[in-house]
Amino acid sequence: MLKILLIEDELIIAKDLQLSLQKDEFATIDIARNYDESIALFLEHNYDLVISDINLKNSIDGIAIIEKFSDIKTVPVVYLTAYSDSKIVDRAKSTMPFAYILKPFNLAQLKITINLAFLNFKKHEENIKPSDENRALLETLTKREKEILIILSTGKTSKEIAESLHISSQTVEKHKQNIRSKLSLKTIGELINFTMTSKLFMLSE
């Protein structure tokens, strides 16, 4: 089970996310509402991932907190933001986040984004460069097919993918067949290799 630090100063939102992500043992969530709580928890625990709202009410925002974290340890970061403003995104990029998600979002989107963050973190750790050929092929996939490819590449089964996206296992299998056909790939290993050399770094819609 994943251990995640959630930095969110709106307690109702934080508690809702905590309950939702802890359901079905997807993750355990610790909540921090400001800079001091965030640093204390980050130093005390070994987190697999950090989810941080960019826009916190106090003077130190989520980006500044992640900048401090990077001096301690590098972990995958997912930013939550209500804005897709290029200046905010560019500032956030300087802290090397591995995914973003725009508010409002649903639980399925957040889980996909968490999986995307782990995928991008692995690419970074292994210094895997994106392939121009794979980037072009990626554009032949629908949004749903990209979502399934992301989750599939983290080792999830069709049943687990179906549960994350709230669709049937049969629907997942059909999408997997379409993905294989469009990419001319046959095995799960080939699909994972394709995903690892494709540029899947974007703001969630």
Rank of each mutant, 00 (worst) to 15 (best):
L43P: 00
V50Q: 07
A32T: 07
L80E: 04
E25R: 14
I88M: 14
K87I: 14
E37A: 12
I60G: 01
D16Q: 12
Q18G: 01
V78H: 09
F42A: 01
S70E: 14
S20Y: 02
N58A: 10
A40I: 03
Q22D: 12
R91L: 12
A40L: 10
S70I: 03
L41N: 05
I65Q: 11
L56H: 04
A92G: 15
Q18W: 05
Y35K: 12
S59Y: 02
E25Y: 14
F26Q: 09
S52I: 02
L43H: 12
E44G: 00
I63K: 08
K23P: 00
S20F: 04
A27N: 11
D71I: 03
N46V: 08
T81P: 05
Y79A: 06
S38W: 02
D24L: 10
I88W: 03
Y83A: 10
P76H: 08
A32K: 06
D16H: 08
Y47V: 03
V50H: 07
I88P: 02
V50W: 08
L80K: 04
D48E: 06
L17P: 01
I39A: 03
S84Q: 10
E44Q: 15
K87R: 12
I72A: 02
S84I: 06
L80M: 13
A92P: 12
K87S: 13
K87F: 08
L21E: 07
I63N: 11
L41T: 01
A27E: 10
E67C: 02
D48V: 01
L21I: 08
P76K: 06
L56A: 06
D85F: 06
L41H: 07
I66M: 13
K68V: 05
D85C: 05
A82R: 03
